[in-house]
Design a protein around this nucleic acid. Structure first.
Lengths: 281, 281
DNA sequence: ACTGGATGTCCGCACAATGGACAATTCGGG
DNA sequence: CCCGAATTGTCCATTGTGCGGACATCCAGT
């Protein structure tokens, strides 16, 4: 048997696995059973069984012409009821769409959440040049994303200290990056000086990114990042092309929020408001 | 005990139930365990177990102040990768079939994807004159297919520029075609002027093709192309015979989409209607 | 104090989910 | 054209897992 992989107690394994499978399918437009088995590290027969269940429930469909599975429209029923923060849907989203309409490459909006950068919104759908789909809702490591680095660099000193401490105790090697306190401080200083953070082929070996923070009154609500296919543009070219529009985008979001067409509850700690009581553990 | 009347074969029950639970949560802003148990007709202990699993996986959160569960931003990872392709099977396919029924030669529908033209649908199986089968799912180079050329020519300027930039850095010689910027611009201008693109024996030395774009509001969704055995028809004969029907086909697809015989629900549409649920029998 | 409804947890049992193994098929390439 | 490698699909003995009845607790209403 596959010896318990360090699972928590009271968990329904097959549900965990089925959801992992669904998430994996969101990452590939059309997937074969084998690809999914590899992505999820599940035994192939298990993937067959779970996929068959998902198919009967209507969440995935078997492409008759392609011999592959794909998501069915019904998956929307799994998340349509989720109400995102208003400043994201009402203000940031449309401005992000505008960016991609002009510059073609996709952008993503991420916020800090539980020691990771949580992808809240992207224009991957709208961008012709996106190779990553299904990113919204995923968590990416703080120190290996441009967005996370930008967030950290511009966060208030005490917050940054607390977060780094948290990361130092992380199990993941992605977060151990924080170990080299020396080197990290250099990086953070550089980001603060330049006003943006970068990442080259770290998350996806085929893409790179640049990110700027969204700062409202000393507070960093999150980061906006552009993502491009690394082979198409060098970092220098990308910087030259994207920095100004990115900063502009961030600025527009901030001013739009200040003018407060947003809901009244945006007072004080807007970022921490969104979840009245986040109980973890 | 639940009756389990129409028990499907090879299904993982706990996954079905967990998904039903998630769907139920999408229907309520905040739900208590009991409400969910009633909605899904699951035993309460089961709901606890499943909810706990969902919580550990990060898809729902427990509001400590309200004693209720609610969806977490991560649920979007379950559906963000879904791209609405229904127009291809629902609208384009039948119209394409009609084309081949009348004109005998096969047509193919391709969309731009990751720097290539992806064959999404064909009428090869319906055409007796087809020599290429099993094309669906295959990727063909942008600049050597009629479909790719048509797509490029009619794409918005900024998109075309970005795509060509990407192709210029491609490893494949098929894409290096883009090197001759001069000659390429001439070709693109010609295509725009004529309204269609052609290809002679480029992909398959025995076949040629003509393609027109599918344009909806300044946006090019893909291309439709006819393929014929080159020795049977000269390009001029083919043009004379196919152009009008091809343009007509593209036009019909576009109007059918505008009339939205497919639910073009932007967001929050009533997509949450028909989850079979547990007590389906 | 009593009642009815809701919340949370326990734990032994049955069987549902599991995955190793094998057969069938496709692919590629020499 | 043939062969080995990789992929696809299915079977079924085994046991670990999900199940849910039962019990304890809490709270609001009367």
């Amino acid at each position: 048997m596959a010896t318990r992989g360090g699972q928590e107690r009271g968990s329904v394994r097959s549900l965990e696995r089925g959801l992992a499978l669904l998430v994996a399918m969101n990452r590939r437009k059309r997937a074969s059973v084998m690809e999914l088995a590899r992505d999820t590290r599940l035994p192939r027969p298990t993937v067959y069984r779970l996929l068959e269940t998902l198919r009967q429930a209507g969440f995935v469909a078997y492409g008759s012409s392609t011999d592959r599975f794909q998501l069915a429209p019904q998956v929307r029923a799994l998340s349509d009821g989720f109400a995102d923060d208003e400043w994201i849907t009402e203000i940031a989203s449309p401005l992000m769409a505008e960016f991609t309409r002009e510059l073609v490459w996709p952008v993503a909006l991420m916020t800090f959440d539980e020691g990771t950068m949580l992808v809240r919104e992207t224009t991957h759908q709208a961008s012709r040049l996106s190779i990553d789909s299904g990113m919204v809702g995923r968590r990416l490591p703080m120190l290996r994303t441009a967005a996370g680095r930008a967030f950290l660099a511009f966060a208030p000193d005490n917050e940054r200290g607390a977060i780094l401490e948290l990361l130092n105790h992380s199990r993941s090697t992605d977060d151990r990056y924080a170990q080299g306190t020396q080197r990290l401080n250099v990086m953070i200083k550089a980001i603060r000086a330049k006003g943006y953070a970068t990442q080259e082929r770290e998350i996806n070996p085929r893409t790179s990114g640049i990110a700027v923070p969204i700062r409202v009154d000393e507070r960093v609500l999150g980061s906006i990042s552009v993502i491009w296919i690394a082979s198409a543009l060098t970092m220098d070219e990308a910087l030259h092309r994207f920095i100004k529009p990115l900063v502009h985008l961030s600025g527009r979001i901030i001013t739009a929020m200040r003018n407060g067409s947003v809901l009244t509850s945006a007072r004080g700690g807007a970022a921490t408001e969104r979840f009245p009581g986040i109980a973890r553990g």
